[in-house]
Amino acid sequence: MPDQTSHKPVMLITGTRKGIGNYLANYYLNKGFIVIGCSRGELDLKSENYIHYCLDVADENKVKNIFRDLKRDFGRLDVLINNAGIASMNHSMLTPLSTVKKIFDTNVTGTFLFSREAAKIMRKSTGGRIVNLTSVAVPLKLAGEAIYAASKAAVNNLTQILAAEFADFGITVNAIGATPLRTDLIKNVPEEKIAKLISKLSIKRLGEFEDVVNAVEFFIKPESNYITGQILYFGGV
């Protein structure tokens, strides 16, 4: 259990079991943050400054429990990173409704619930930061990504409207429009599809975890308190 009396910054990251979320959790733990993470499954991350919750990010009551504990244990939240996301690359005529609901639950409802509850804590101090993960799939409008792109388009809109609503509380809300990275999210996507996507970028390569960290660092630093409602796309999209 982290030292509750410390003045270390407190960051909550959703989807920390693997991929970007896992990388960010380790990165910010190494930087001296207290990191609260969550995922559907267990995560054995050995750090006294890390707390893990197993949950579905669209489960309102369980999400509220995280924030109740956060309030009790630390009394504040400095940064929320809405990273948890799922994808299903398929032709829309072959996409079952259950997949549509699952994608929207995780990508949109989860982002909304965590942002709403985070703002309730962050409103008590100034300088709260919310960073959402969106995708270049929105502007590229790629065939085969209808539902994933639609869910991330919703995240973009959510980002910009929450930015307006939370500005009164000194909270900024921004989003990172990542290109594909070597994560589980694209493990089932054929190489030629990835190559086709990369060909549409100005800088023709996959994204790296360091690219995401760089953007997060920019959005959360104190000097970025005038930057809100922005969608930062990678690779020159």
């Binding site: 509220k64 429990n65 109740r68 309030k71 409103r123």
Partner: peptide
């Protein structure tokens, strides 16, 4: 918004129950 959020928080603290 401030008022409802504050009341919700105080009620949750008082009862230990999550409410929206």
């Amino acid at each position: 918004v401030h008022l409802i959020t504050s009341i919700e928080e105080k009620t949750e603290e008082a009862t230990g129950k999550n409410i929206t």
